Amino acid sequence: MENNRILVHGRVQGVGFRASAKQMAEQLGVTGWVKNQPDGTVLIEAEAEEGQLKRFIEKINEGPTPFSQVESLDITTHDEIQGYSRFKVVH
């Protein structure tokens, strides 16, 4: 099990990004949360097995909606596993 914090830069607010990220996470068995940041980025905390997490990050990098445009990802791996039971959108 791995825990990653993913800071997503680009056109990622107001384009359905969080809802699409949640849907992708649920399909891939990833738990955690996604939240808009005041600076226009989106912050994701995601937990899953390494392969699932890698696939989720690939999908996020592609831009989960036709209207989003991901410019870059800052990914930080955390040693502490939170044990989330689901993936949610944080407002």
Score class of each variant (00 low, 15 high):
1 M>Y: 05
1 M>G: 12
5 R>S: 11
7 L>F: 04
7 L>E: 07
10 G>V: 03
10 G>F: 05
11 R>W: 11
11 R>F: 12
12 V>S: 06
13 Q>V: 03
13 Q>W: 06
13 Q>R: 04
14 G>R: 02
15 V>I: 01
15 V>A: 04
15 V>E: 03
16 G>N: 07
16 G>V: 02
18 R>L: 04
19 A>M: 13
19 A>Y: 13
20 S>G: 14
20 S>V: 10
20 S>I: 08
21 A>W: 09
21 A>I: 10
21 A>T: 12
22 K>A: 10
22 K>G: 07
23 Q>I: 04
23 Q>V: 05
23 Q>P: 01
24 M>T: 01
24 M>L: 11
25 A>V: 01
26 E>D: 07
27 Q>D: 04
27 Q>K: 12
29 G>P: 01
29 G>H: 01
29 G>T: 02
30 V>M: 00
30 V>P: 01
30 V>I: 09
31 T>Q: 01
32 G>Q: 00
33 W>N: 00
33 W>I: 00
34 V>P: 07
35 K>A: 10
35 K>D: 05
37 Q>G: 03
37 Q>K: 05
38 P>N: 06
38 P>L: 05
39 D>Y: 09
42 V>M: 11
42 V>P: 10
43 L>P: 08
44 I>H: 05
44 I>Q: 06
45 E>L: 09
45 E>R: 05
45 E>N: 08
46 A>F: 04
51 G>R: 03
52 Q>M: 07
52 Q>K: 09
53 L>H: 00
54 K>Y: 00
56 F>W: 00
56 F>H: 01
57 I>S: 01
59 K>L: 02
59 K>H: 01
60 I>R: 03
61 N>F: 08
61 N>Q: 13
62 E>I: 10
64 P>Q: 12
66 P>M: 12
67 F>M: 10
68 S>F: 10
68 S>I: 13
69 Q>I: 14
70 V>C: 15
71 E>P: 13
72 S>C: 15
73 L>I: 08
73 L>Y: 12
73 L>T: 11
74 D>M: 14
74 D>I: 13
75 I>A: 15
76 T>L: 15
77 T>V: 13
78 H>W: 14
79 D>I: 13
79 D>Y: 15
80 E>D: 11
82 Q>P: 02
83 G>P: 06
84 Y>N: 03
84 Y>W: 10
85 S>F: 06
86 R>I: 03
88 K>D: 03
88 K>P: 01
89 V>H: 06
91 H>N: 09
